[in-house]
């Protein structure tokens, strides 16, 4: 078989896998919707509705139909972009989500930049200095980040850095004073304020995001450090590293130009996974910092039993992870010649 053919089958197989995973995901969200202890009809008609009204709505929702038919309708809805209306807010679910998602994406992106910016170099340094004091310091540092209770640290950090030192903004995405001042275009406050040329709002937003992002970033840097260290140790034990030294490359050149290049793809994969779990919503941090994001939204929906909203949230989380897996597969294909 020619290389091109293998490549074609590889890509086709991948699309097949994605289709099957997606179908499984939709089945899952569908059954979550059916099995939730909340009664969707009651939620619409209210407690005092007559039996007739109840049954009418019951039928209009298609709940008298066989399950497979309901699933088919659900599929049709999803693929036409109709995710239903939120019972809690009375708005189309998709509109609510588009409103909360940017806040979370903004926070998660900021956090992952900190997490990777900290975790990758620390992991490399720890590996290079294996079993020396620097390695131990890094290990303790990242163990602490891994095990810190983020709810508690979040509050302490707010008290210290906001209340006492006044170094950063408090909770929320910006100072109360600025809310509603800039037009919402992308939903990303840092970008919207720049577009509008409102530098005050921009600085306020930056001041508010820095603390929760630093905490989230530190906490995900623990995982990134640990993985980077072990990937790097794997490579440093390889014989090609010796070859590079024999050729006359310095220790640093060998580390960065040979060993590190070999862990790139693995690194992007685990950073993408860490990013994915940040997008899924950092509920605790969002609660402590009154951050109006996806994590809080999902939690509220679970508490109130808002069926359409929960189904859609689960679907989105699933799609994010499918996308990240796809990204890492594609990267392997591009950067690792052995998979071509």
């Amino acid at each position: 078989m020619s290389h091109r053919r293998i490549r074609f089958y590889g890509a086709a197989g991948q699309l097949g896998t994605i289709a099957v995973t997606l179908l499984g995901l939709l089945l899952l969200t569908f059954f979550i919707g059916r099995l939730m202890p909340a009664d969707p009809v009651r939620a619409i008609v209210g407690e005092d509705a007559t039996r007739e009204t109840y049954e009418q709505v019951y039928r209009s929702l298609g709940l008298d139909r066989p399950l497979w038919e309901q699933f088919a309708y659900y599929l049709g809805d999803v693929f036409t972009g109709n995710f239903g209306t939120s019972i809690r807010t009375g708005q189309p679910v998709i509109q609510d989500i588009l409103h909360v998602m940017p806040a979370t994406i903004e926070l998660a992106t900021f956090a992952i930049l900190i997490g990777a910016g900290l975790g990758v170099p620390l992991g490399v340094f720890a590996a290079v200095n294996k079993d020396r004091w620097l390695d131990h310091v890094v290990r303790v540092f990242s163990l602490f980040g891994h095990s810190m209770p983020i709810f508690w640290t979040g509050m302490i950090a707010l008290i210290v850095f906001y209340a006492h030192l006044g170094l950063v903004g408090g909770s929320g995405r910006m100072d109360q004073f600025y809310i509603g001042l800039v037009e919402e275009r992308t939903g990303f406050l840092l970008i919207d304020s720049l577009i509008a040329g409102e530098m005050d709002v921009f600085w306020s937003a930056l001041n508010h995001i820095i603390l929760p992002a630093a905490l989230l970033g530190y906490s995900s840097s623990a995982y990134i450090t640990r993985m980077t260290r072990s990937f790097m140790l794997d490579q440093l034990g390889q014989e090609y590293v010796t070859t590079a030294r024999v050729k006359g490359l310095s220790r640093n050149q060998t580390i960065w130009q040979h060993a590190f290049v070999n862990i790139r793809v693995q690194l992007v994969t685990i950073i993408a996974l860490a990013y994915g779990s940040l997008l899924e919503g950092a509920v605790l941090i969002e609660t402590v910092f009154a951050w109006p994001g996806f994590g809080q939204y999902l939690t509220n929906n679970l508490i109130t039993g808002d069926m359409n909203a929960v189904m859609t949230c689960v679907l989105i989380v699933g799609v994010i992870f499918i996308g990240l897996n796809l990204l890492s597969d594609v990267l392997y294909r591009i950067f690792d010649p052995r998979t071509r």
């Binding site: 090609y240 010796t242 070999n262 052995r338």
Partner: peptide, 15 residues
């Protein structure tokens, strides 16, 4: 310089 034993391991796989 030094010629190492096994080219399967002594060459960098992705370059």
């Amino acid at each position: 310089s030094m010629i190492l034993q096994d080219p399967k391991f002594s060459l960098n796989p992705i370059r």
